[in-house]
Write a protein that binds this DNA or RNA. Structure first.
Lengths: 242, 242
DNA sequence: CGCTTAATTGAAATGGTTCAATGCCTGTGG
DNA sequence: CCACAGGCATTGAACCATTTCAATTAAGCG
C-alpha cells in the first residue's frame, strides 16, 4: 500500500494535511507510529454513488479523501437536493470538527473513493497541542468559506451559463493546483454527471444539458464519457465574467 | 460611557467575545487594562448607509459591532450586489482573521452603528495563547458557516417566498437569542429596507415588495416604518417549510 | 442481454425580472 | 416650520430565463 521510496502513498498526499503533519499512517509506518502516529485511523474504500456518511456519523470521526471525488449535499423536502461542496483528494472533511451542522447533510462518493478516517477526539486534541496543525485546519476551513462566498454570489446574482462556467473553471483550477491534472491539459477526467452540476449550481439537470450543449455548439467545451475538453478556455472565462 | 455597576456597557456585551474574555476596554478599564486589556483598540461610530470598510482595510484590524446592524456584501459587475451576511451587536467581523477573502467585499452600516476596532496582529497573538479565546472565535466562524450552508440551500432550491420568510425568521431568532428583542415580542424593530432583503435573498427589491405585500394581505406579517409585526408566526413558519 | 439510470430535445407553463409611472416618506436647508 | 430632493415603496404590464412535463434515445451495470 505505502511507497516508502518515493515518500508518497498517493499523488494527493503532498497536499494532504494529515500527511504533511506526519499524522497519517501512510507516512509514519510501523516503528514511527508512536511519534505522531498515535492518532487512531483506518483506511477505507467505497463504490461510486454510495453515501459515505450522514451528518450524525461525523460526530466521532474525521475523514480525509485519498482518492476520488466526494460531495457534501443536503436533501430538500420534495425530493430535490443541493450540493454544498466537492471534496477532492487530500482534502479534509472537517466541517463538523468544532460543532455540528445545522442542516442534515450527506457525504457521498461520486466516483469510487479511497479515504482515511481519523478519530475526532484525538484529532482535536492534537490540533490544540500543535500550532502548525491548527493553522493548517484553519486554512482549509477558511478556504472553504471563500468558496462559499463565491457560490452565494453566483447563486444569487448570476445566470445559469455563468454559474456552470464558473463551477467548471473552479474545479479545473483546484485539480490543477493539486497536480491531479497537468496544468496545460485541455482534456481531463471529469466524473460529474449533469445532475451533480445541476445540484451544485441550483439548476435542473435538464437545463444543465441545454447550457452544456450550447457551450459545445459554440466550441467552448465538450463534456462526455467522464471527460472534459476545454476547447476555448478564453471564451469560457469570458462567459464566467472573468 | 461604561456602566461599572451593572457590569455591562451595552445590552449585547453579554454575548460579545471580546467582553467575555475581558479583552474589551469597556470592561477592563484603566487600572485593569494591563491584564488582558493590552489589545490595542478604539471605539468608533458611523452613520447609517455608510461603508465602514473595504476588504483591504481589514488586513490590520478586526471590528466588533457594539450597536446597530451591519452587512457584508459583494458588488457584482453590472451594478448589482449580494449580501453575504448580517452582523448584529456583539458579533465579530472576523472573516479575514486568518486569510484574505477571495471576493472584494464591503462592510456597510445599515443603521447608525457603534463598533470597536481591535488590532489584528494582537488579536491573533492573544488567540493562540488563550485556548478559551480560540474556541470562541472558532465557534463564531463555524456558526457563520452553518448560516452559509442554509443560505446556499435556500438560494439554490427554494422560492422567493420561502427565502424571504426564512431570512426574516432567522434574523428574529438571532435578535431574540441575543436578548435584543423580547422573546415573546410580536412587534420589533427591523431596519432592513426592501433592497437589503432582495440583496440577501438574490431577489429584486421590486419582487420583495410583491412577496411582502402578499404576506401582509394574508395577515402573516407587516413590515413598515422600520418595524416588523409578526401577525401569524405559525403561518410564517409554514411558508418557510419548517 | 436486459434493466436501470442518464442525456437529449421540444413544447408549455411559471416565477421572477425589467421597465415605467406614481406617490410616499425622511432628512435637510432655508 | 415648510418646501424640496433623493431615496424608497408600490403597482401593473410585458418579457424572459428556467422549470416542468413528456417522450425518445443513449449509456452504464450486473
Amino acid at each position: 500500500m505505502e511507497d516508502r521510496t518515493s515518500g508518497l502513498a498517493r499523488p494527493a498526499c503532498r497536499y494532504c494535511p494529515a500527511y504533511q503533519l506526519a499524522i497519517c499512517h501512510a507516512r509514519t509506518v510501523a516503528s514511527d507510529a508512536r511519534v505522531r502516529g498515535g492518532v487512531e485511523q483506518s483506511v477505507r474504500s467505497i463504490a461510486a454513488r454510495r453515501t459515505m456518511f450522514r451528518e450524525r456519523d461525523l460526530h466521532d470521526i474525521v475523514p480525509i479523501v485519498c482518492n476520488g471525488w466526494v460531495s457534501r449535499d443536503v436533501g430538500v423536502s420534495g425530493g430535490g437536493r443541493m450540493i454544498l461542496s466537492f471534496y477532492l483528494p487530500g482534502q479534509l472533511i472537517g466541517d463538523t470538527l468544532f460543532a455540528e451542522s445545522a442542516v442534515d447533510s450527506f457525504v457521498e462518493a461520486i466516483t469510487d473513493v479511497e479515504y482515511r478516517v481519523f478519530k475526532r477526539s484525538t484529532v482535536r486534541e492534537f490540533m490544540f497541542i500543535c500550532d502548525e496543525s491548527l493553522e493548517m485546519v484553519l486554512r482549509g476551513l477558511i478556504e472553504e468559506m471563500r468558496r462559499y462566498d463565491q457560490l452565494i454570489v453566483d447563486l444569487g446574482r448570476h445566470s445559469a451559463e455563468v454559474r456552470v462556467a464558473r463551477l467548471i473553471l473552479r474545479l479545473v483550477e483546484r485539480l490543477k493546483a493539486r497536480e491531479l491534472e497537468k496544468s496545460d491539459a485541455h482534456r481531463l477526467r471529469f466524473p460529474l454527471r449533469h445532475h451533480h452540476i445541476g445540484d451544485a449550481t441550483g439548476l435542473t439537470s435538464v437545463h444543465v444539458t441545454k447550457v452544456l450543449s450550447k457551450f459545445r455548439h459554440e466550441h467552448v467545451l465538450a463534456l462526455g464519457s467522464r471527460t472534459l475538453s476545454l476547447l476555448d478556455p478564453a471564451a469560457l472565462n469570458r462567459i464566467a465574467g472573468w
